[in-house]
Amino acid sequence: MTYKLILNGKTLKGETTTEAVDAATAEKVFKQYANDNGSDGEWTYDDATKTFTVTE
């Protein structure tokens, strides 16, 4: 399945997607991506749209 990440950071904004077997796997990928790019904030997940959002 395709999962989407929306970044609403102070310095990093945008979207990216990943293919993953489940939401937990996608979350690990996205959290590593956000960490690698210095983005940290409040995470939410919408199962209906398969979208993670991180807001700083």
Rank of each mutant, 00 (worst) to 15 (best):
F52Y: 05
V21I: 13
T11Q: 09
F52C: 00
N35D: 10
T53A: 04
G38V: 07
T16E: 05
K50G: 04
W43V: 02
G41E: 03
E15H: 10
N37E: 06
N35I: 15
T51Y: 02
G41M: 11
E56V: 12
L7K: 00
T25D: 07
D46K: 03
N35W: 14
E56Y: 14
E42L: 13
T51Q: 03
E15Y: 14
T16V: 15
K13T: 09
K10H: 11
D36R: 09
K28L: 12
G14L: 15
E19F: 15
T17E: 08
E42W: 11
G14W: 15
V29N: 05
I6C: 07
I6G: 01
V54T: 02
V21E: 10
Y33E: 02
A23S: 08
Y33M: 05
E27K: 10
N35M: 15
Y45N: 00
K50E: 01
A48K: 10
S39V: 15
K28Q: 11
T25F: 06
E19M: 14
E19C: 14
D46G: 01
I6M: 05
E56H: 08
A24H: 08
L7G: 02
D46N: 08
V21F: 12
D46F: 04
F52W: 06
K4D: 03
L12K: 11
A48C: 08
T44C: 09
G9M: 14
T49F: 04
Q32G: 06
N8R: 12
A26I: 01
A24N: 07
K28H: 07
D46M: 04
G41F: 12
K4L: 07
T2Y: 07
S39C: 15
T51R: 02
M1G: 10
Y33A: 03
T25R: 05
M1T: 14
G14D: 09
L12W: 14
G14I: 15
T51D: 00
T2A: 05
T17S: 10
L12V: 12
K10Q: 10
L7S: 04
N37Q: 13
Y3H: 03
D22Y: 02
T44I: 08
T49C: 04
F30T: 00
K28T: 07
T25I: 06
A48Y: 09
G9E: 05
K50D: 01
M1Y: 15
K10C: 14
T16Y: 15
F52I: 00
A26V: 01
D47V: 08
T16G: 04
Q32R: 11
G14N: 09
T16F: 15
V54N: 02
G14M: 15
F30R: 01
T55D: 06
A20N: 02
T55R: 06
T11N: 12
V29T: 09
V29M: 09
Y45S: 00
E42T: 13
L12H: 13
F52V: 01
T2G: 04
F30P: 00
T16M: 15
T11I: 11
T55V: 08
A20R: 02
E27I: 07
